[in-house]
Amino acid sequence: MAEHNASQTKKGGWGSFLLGFAFMFAVGWFFFGNHFAVPPLYGKKIQPVAFSHKVHVEDAGMACKDCHYLKANGRWSGIPKIDKCAECHQEPQGETKEEANFIKNYVKPHKEVPWLVYSRQPKNVFFSHAAHLKIARFNCKVCHGKMGYNDTPPVYVYSRLSKYPQHTVIVMEACMDCHKKYDAPNYCFTCHK
């Protein structure tokens, strides 16, 4: 009798425990891991224009630095302004509907595209493209991965609480690890302003 009770207790107890473990483990990974990126914590957005890096690089034969370059004063040009796009896209270059829409919505009214920046950093971060490109001689891929080869822009996943992008953003820890690895300075004001 005693033996029976003991085994029953043991069995039932572990079951609840495992159930609880499995349940919360699943909930945690599903709702809070950014792999699935589901509400309520995460939200998804689509870029306002279905820009294809692939078309520009492979088909049009452009280089990264045609649009993203280091200015003479050492600052990074960032995402090109609509003027830059309009240099080629005053008239449609292809036959896609996206391009026609892009010209209709942004180029003609001369309106800046509200791009969603995958690597948007907090407001007190200073990032020097100059130092990473010219001193560390990094390739764009080191930080931006395959961003320059995609055909459709990846879905923009962001946290609804903090409003920061999730997948492609580099967090401070990653910056610091890399700086450590390459023996680069790691002081507050190296990257903060």
């Binding site: 280091l70 200015k71 003479a72 004063n73 050492g74 600052r75 407001k123 007190n124 200073f126 020097s128 100059a130 130092a131 010219k134 001193i135 004001f189 903060h192 302003k193």
Partner: peptide, 27 residues
């Protein structure tokens, strides 16, 4: 960057000017 309530701040020797001067020199 502007600072929020509840933090300490102080002169930075205008470090941002160094950051930009350095970027210019690198370029």
């Amino acid at each position: 960057s502007t600072r929020m309530r509840g933090v300490v701040e102080k002169c930075s020797f205008c470090n941002h000017r160094y950051q930009h001067a350095r970027d210019k020199a690198i370029a």
